[in-house]
């Protein structure tokens, strides 16, 4: 019991920090001291000071403001992508696991093929074909992301459908749809949601990575990966321009990964 309590406290603390981060992104408009995309020739590449806490970049734009606004783009895209993959993957997984048969075999082989390549390689290829843009980047990541959800949901459904309580529901004359909605889905939601939490970090790296490669957002929209790519050119004269977005990426990813782990630990204790 004590272990469980400790795990719960850990989750609350990490979740609070994650929430704070989300609020920073949501209220970027209020918090940002300057316009994130307004160039200012008078303040090019200034080191951090009171006016510009994280310095300015090559075009004299406030790095802090851009990091805050960039968070919006990155986090919103990440959440949307994780949610869609979660929904699509879980739906496919449940149906495959429950009904089995030829469709299940086919979809699972497709999943195997997709898993055979590193996720980023496929994402780069697809994003290249789709010619960049945030939507393109999201689609290119989504192509492989649903797989992990589908597999997890499928294996849980597979185990659940042989449980005695599912049999009991069948004897009570309940329809497949009823069983899927009210018995199977609620019972596999927890593990699949945990999986979604742990996916947030990697998705964020993926999206930032694509932007870094020029396959994501189109400048001047602020986005962490794109900012790092841009600042790379003058990293020796103005290292702060890269520090801001890099720190933001690292903190966010650590935070969400840790949150996912904490929740997973909690469920195991």
């Amino acid at each position: 019991m004590r272990k469980k309590k400790r795990a719960r406290i850990k989750i609350i603390i990490v979740a609070a920090l994650a929430l704070l981060l989300l609020l920073c992104a949501v209220f970027a408009g209020v918090l940002a001291p300057h316009d994130p995309s307004a160039p200012n020739a008078a303040v090019i590449r200034i080191a951090p000071c009171a006016e510009y806490p994280l310095g300015t970049d090559n075009l004299g734009r406030c790095v802090l403001s851009r990091v805050l606004y960039g968070g919006r783009t990155t986090i919103a895209a990440t959440f949307l992508l994780v949610f869609i993959s979660f929904a699509v993957g879980t739906l496919i997984g449940i149906l495959c696991g429950y009904y089995g048969g030829i469709v299940d075999k086919l979809l699972m082989r497709v999943a195997d093929v997709l898993l055979a390549f590193p996720q980023m390689v496929i994402a780069i290829a697809v994003a290249g074909i789709l010619n960049g843009g945030m939507t393109g980047a999201m689609i290119s990541m989504g192509v492989t992301m649903w797989v992990s959800f589908a597999r997890l949901a499928r294996s849980h459904t597979f185990a659940l459908k042989n449980e005695a309580y599912i049999q009991a529901a069948v004897f009570a004359g309940k329809s497949d749809l009823y069983i899927l909605l009210f018995h199977i889905f609620p019972n596999l939601l927890a593990p699949v949601l945990t999986q979604a939490l742990t996916q947030i970090g990697t998705t964020m790296i993926g999206l930032s990575g694509l932007s870094f490669l020029g396959l994501g957002v189109i400048p001047p929209t602020p986005e962490w990966g794109a900012m790092i790519a841009e600042a790379r050119a003058y990293i020796q004269i103005a290292p702060w321009t890269i520090m801001g977005p890099a720190a933001a990426v690292i903190i966010t990813i650590i935070l969400f990964n840790y949150l996912g782990d904490a929740v997973m630990d909690y469920r195991e204790v």
């Binding site: 449980e163 005695a164 309580y165 069948v170």
Partner: peptide
């Protein structure tokens, strides 16, 4: 199938706890 036979018969399983939805 059990959906029809369930109208006149019921199964009582060995593992009673798992014959009820845990949630």
């Amino acid at each position: 199938k059990p959906r029809q036979t369930g109208q006149f018969l019921q199964m009582i399983f060995q593992d009673a706890n798992s014959s009820f939805d845990p949630r």
